[in-house]
Nucleic acid binder design. Structure first.
Length: 600
RNA sequence: GGGCCGGUAGCUCAGUUAGGGAGAGCGUCUGACUCUUAAUCAGACGGUCAGGGGUUCAAAUCCCUUCCGGCCCGCCA
């Protein structure tokens, strides 16, 4: 005979409960055995003698645009996984799409599979609104490209991981329910409701004797409902009434239907579902946001130990990112996705961002992206022993290989032969190839070159690849590097240019080739420009032209700065730009002459 | 209201585990290169380490307290 929900007499007890010593989620506080946090976490995991494969999990509900902050769930785990693999262990990184969760409110912004953010109004918002309260996997995909809303956004998350070359096994929570993976634990929970209520009651006042740790899906309207009237674990079913559900300050109306659901036709409440996932998937480690740290983690680890009687994973609470100083917000569209950042950064730079201390909040500043790149370049030099500066070489030694390995795998064969046209920027590295790729890093990749990011942005002023390379060589940033290194160095130009374009900063200039920008000239300046044109007509040397700009200005008693500004206005419609002499020397002469003479 | 995490130069941050000299990069300013143009190089300016109190020979670091920000204590991940 199963428990009858109404017979429970246990009162909710909200007094604080002592946490198990190993369950403090702030694992990075206090003395750490290693300079790189991921190695310290890895050691904590190994202290428990886990069997191979070690399972590291992350997970979010696929409710909308997966932004950079959400990627903590995957990338933090990746660095721990890599530290474990460095110690010879086999690791599975899994990611649960918590896609049986109900849609509680309509996001204002969505994203298509390519990562383009669109307004809710651009898709069929009305159709979406009728699906409030239903599991994400039971809602049609508003973009009509995937089987469901949930699958659409799970695909986006998976795509983000792929772009970073992080091997992740995606697990659909809905599929776990449908295939019966949670059946045994659900039955156990419903057979031991007393215990479940007793433990959760320490954390949630609403847990009373009527509380049943299972939420069926209404067979009539398809919504998740919370009112279970009786339980029959022998038959594996519950009876329910489809009542209203509170979601934030709104109420999602139930249809009033009374029905019967199996354990596969519903879901566990989150506080039980999370620990159930640990058991079903054998999770050894899970990072989670600071929002969980004081909420569902304490109750979850308690439920694991004292209801399911399993050991919860090694936790790690991470602080959240902000984006240009403001919190990420999927619903309002203040987000940046992996896809966006990779238009401005090499993937290794983005991975590098996640090697920083997870216990500190961090701003992902698009405006100051050049600083992040400069920092990465120093980090890379520290790894190769090229910099005797402040950068921590111990951290670089531990963190750099996992940061670049997916890049190396995308660009080189295992024997170090460069791949001519890499299809993607990052490729997951098979365990068997790790050591050989590490040799490629040390023996081949050490001759890579990085153009300083802002310099790369300056080169973005011209579309001409040869001109870009010529200027980079002239300024001493390229020498006798192998072809792959030159190609890779110059690939930063497009990214830096995209950064300049997006931020509209001082590097955001482009050659105005087709139309002459408007510029107000006095007679002296016009005469000076004509003279300069005559000079350029007969001279090709960059330095001579640069010098002549000064000379011409002096001869006509024009302020040097103003004369340069006129030049920039004429060519870029801006008041600043690249070093003008070498630039004019490299451009096609006819265009330069015509423009200096204001002929087009 | 209770709990947790954070607050170091204009900006981004390191340093807090095991107390001992307050740091880096960027920005700013000045100078130099008989040529301001991501210039480069050199130098300078810049912080009562959020405030206050305590312990100590010594505190950014340890303790107490106040303030500010974020999160949790409803739901949800």
């Amino acid at each position: 005979m199963s428990d009858d929900a109404t017979e429970s007499s246990e009162e909710a007890d909200s007094t604080a409960r002592e946490m198990h010593a190993e369950d403090d989620p702030y694992v990075l506080q206090g003395p750490q055995p290693h300079p790189f946090w991921a190695e310290s976490v890895a050691e904590k995991i190994l202290d428990r003698d886990p069997d191979d494969p070690i399972v590291i999990k992350g997970g979010i509900s696929p409710s909308g645009v997966p932004h950079l902050g959400n990627m903590n769930e995957i990338v933090r785990g990746y660095f721990v996984a890599e530290a474990l693999r460095d110690r010879g262990r086999e690791v599975r990184q899994v990611f649960t799409a918590d896609d049986r969760d109900p849609l509680r409110k309509l996001p204002r912004k969505l994203a298509d599979l390519d990562g383009n953010v669109v307004d809710l109004g651009d898709v069929n918002a009305g159709a979406l609104g009728r699906n409030l309260g239903k599991p994400y996997t039971a809602i049609p995909d508003p973009f009509e490209c995937c089987d469901s809303y949930g699958e659409h956004f799970s695909n986006l998350i998976e795509r983000s991981a792929e772009l970073l070359g992080i091997p992740v096994e995606m697990v659909s929570n809905t599929e776990l329910y449908e295939s019966g993976e949670f059946e045994e634990l659900t039955e156990y929970l419903l057979d031991n409701q007393q215990k479940a209520r007793e433990v959760l009651g320490h954390y949630q006042d609403k847990v009373d004797e009527d509380y049943v740790p299972f939420n069926p899906i209404c067979e009539e309207c398809g919504k998740i409902t919370e009112t279970v009237t009786s339980v029959d674990t022998e038959a594996g079913t519950v009876e329910y009434v489809c009542t209203d559900m509170e979601a934030g300050d709104k109420t999602i109306e139930g249809c009033g239907h009374e029905g019967t659901a199996t354990f596969r036709e519903g879901k566990l409440p989150w506080r039980f579902e999370w620990p159930a996932q640990w058991e079903v998937l054998g999770v050894d480690h899970e990072p989670f946001g600071k929002d969980h740290a004081e909420g569902s983690w304490p109750s979850g680890s308690d439920v694991a130990r004292n209801v399911f009687e399993i050991e919860p994973p090694v936790p790690m609470a991470y602080e959240w990112f902000t984006l240009d100083g403001e919190p990420f917000s999927s619903s309002s569209g203040h987000v940046i996705m992996v896809q966006d950042t990779l238009e401005m950064l090499e993937p290794e730079v983005l991975r590098y961002f996640f090697t920083k201390d997870p216990s500190k909040a961090r701003d992902f500043s698009v405006e100051h992206l050049d600083q992040l790149v400069d920092e990465f370049d120093a980090f890379e030099r520290a790894y190769f022993g090229e910099e005797s500066g402040e950068t921590d070489e111990e951290i670089a030694a531990a963190a750099y290989p996992p940061v670049v390995r997916p890049t190396i795998a995308a660009r080189f064969e295992t024997d170090g032969t460069p791949i001519a046209d890499p299809e993607t920027g990052s490729v997951p590295v098979a365990d068997a190839d790790r050591e050989t790729y590490d040799e490629v890093i040390d023996e081949t990749f050490h001759s890579r070159v990085r153009l300083p990011y802002t310099f790369a942005a300056v080169l973005g002023m011209t579309d001409d690849p040869d001109l870009r390379e010529a200027i980079a060589r002239r300024e001493g940033h390229l020498a006798e590097e192998p072809e792959w290194a030159v190609e890779m160095a110059l690939s930063r130009v497009e990214r830096a240019r995209e950064w300049a374009r997006r931020t509209g900063n001082e590097f955001d200039y482009e050659l105005k080739r087709t139309e002459m920008p408007y510029v107000d000239l006095d007679a002296d300046t016009e005469a000076a420009l004509d003279e300069l044109a005559d000079f350029v007509e007969n001279h090709d040397d960059p330095d001579e032209i640069q010098g002549e700009i000064y000379e011409t200005a002096k001869r006509h008693d024009i302020d040097i700065g103003e004369f340069f500004s006129v030049g920039y206005r004429l060519f870029f419609d801006d008041d600043q730009g690249p070093k003008l002499g070498p630039f004019l020397a490299k451009l096609d002469k006819q265009f330069v002459l015509a423009r200096l003479r204001r002929e087009e």
